[in-house]
Amino acid sequence: MAGQFQKHKLGAAGIGGMLGLSMCITLFFPSFDFRSGESTWVGLDKTLSNGRVIGFSYEDPLVRGEGKPTTVVLNKDPKTGEAIDPPIRAYVYDAKAPLSAGVRHPSNMGPTVGKLSIEKGKIDQANDSDPVVFTIEATDVDGEEWHYVNNATVNNGWTAEAVLNTAGAESQYLIGRGKTVYITEGCWWCHTLLPEHTQDWQVFGTPPFLGDFNGEMPTAFGSDRKAPDLLHVAARNSSKEWMTMHFFNPRLVQPNSIMPRFDYLWGKTDANGKAIDFSKWRAEYNDYVSGKTVHPPEVPEYAPESEARALIDWVLMSLR
């Protein structure tokens, strides 16, 4: 082989060079644009309510929504008792919930937001193993309003326990766990989270902004739309009752829907701890469909620990 023209060596160099150039253009150059994206309130809300990662992770290997924060709506200060009007969201991380991707790496939230969150928000004083509460605060920088993450445990003296007690069970939302259900049930194979630059705006609302994703994982945009876009669905329909019926059996509220039934997300028991008899429910529903009865059977009320509850929490709180 010595001295022979080595065609494959020349070719390998050519392939490497061309692929390197295309990766430079499609990966390296855009990375500057991505890094300079400043997080909006939507982006901060997502990263704080979702937790570290949705989907398979160390804290949640079976993808059951473990290790996620709880989002609460507060209308009074848990420490001083002062009224908060309008009510704000607080994000409670217990000892099992690792910090969100945004708090973990503040540069994820953008250069200015990250800096504000450290200097004013003191998020660098939070850690994975201690309970901590975050809020989103606004401040003025050079005449412009900026949102940043505030470590309320340090700055306001709010403990996780006090925040949960003040909010009460009815104002707690399992958003991170709900998005986990969206991922595991493969909702994004049919629904998108990305309205387009078309007449879509009229029906599904505006496309997302640059800073709406910082620290979110996965984004689950979806590409194959067999069903409506959901990015702003709760702004169109915020009825919990409708959502409950629709998830249990979509054809109760929309006879022509081709969405699968998600009754199995209710689990074994309903809100009162009573066992749900699915086969009886289906038989009664079939009677209703075939015209033997006038009314469909009642949809069982979901239990607070059910996946259905988490999913509806996420839809109503996050997709606005």
């Binding site: 990966l27 991505f34 994820n108 979110e216 994982m217 984004t219």
Partner: peptide, 18 residues
Amino acid sequence: APELFNLTGLTEGYLTFW
């Protein structure tokens, strides 16, 4: 890489379709 190195946000969305 987003899963291996915990890259998030638009980077993750872009790399998924990349």
